[in-house]
Amino acid sequence: MRREKEKKSRLFKWAAICFAVVFSFFLADFLMGEPRVPERAVGSIPFDHALHGDSIGLDCAACHTGSRASANAFMPSKADCMDCHRLPLTENPGIETLDSVLAKADDRPWSHKRHLPDHVVFHHGVHAAAGVACADCHGRGYMQNRYGAELFNMQSCLKCHRGETFKEKGFKPAATYCAACHR
């Protein structure tokens, strides 16, 4: 009997050691790794992506004016909103409060710090032209007005450039040498 107990305790001891080693590796990896994009609040003007995107059928580039042509996708300016909101659009009562908030808003209502470091080059236009949809990288969160929390680390970009992810979309394998995306 004592031999089984002793053998079981030795087994338990080894399991504990292996767990401690593996756990400390992943803990350090988690702590020192690249964090997710921080969550962002909706901002002063309540905006609903699902309403504008799905029901009205606006293309992302309509408000994010740089997402098809330039490196930076930019946020809409007040003038971009007023293109459509210059007239009362619907009957439901919410529209008055929206129009008053819009009137009071300053002309660049949304602004945030660029998440990618300065030495990283990311060009929205090239990826849009290559057929990459916005949801592929930004996920579906923005449809439920949850912004941020995407995982933009180098390994996810490299896997896509090598064609290891989104195989079904048949993207052309892209450049993976350092100076393609770093400055």
Binding site: F25, A28, D29, F30, L31, M32, G33, E34, P35, T65, G66, S70, N72, A73, F74, M75, P76, S77, D80, D107, R108, W110, S111, H112, K113, R114, H115, L116, P117, D118, H119
Partner: peptide, 16 residues
């Protein structure tokens, strides 16, 4: 292995 993360960019993004 993780390698630490370099600090975010200083410039802000708003409208074009």
């Amino acid at each position: 292995f993780a390698g630490g993360s370099s600090q975010n960019s200083t410039n802000t993004i708003d409208s074009q």
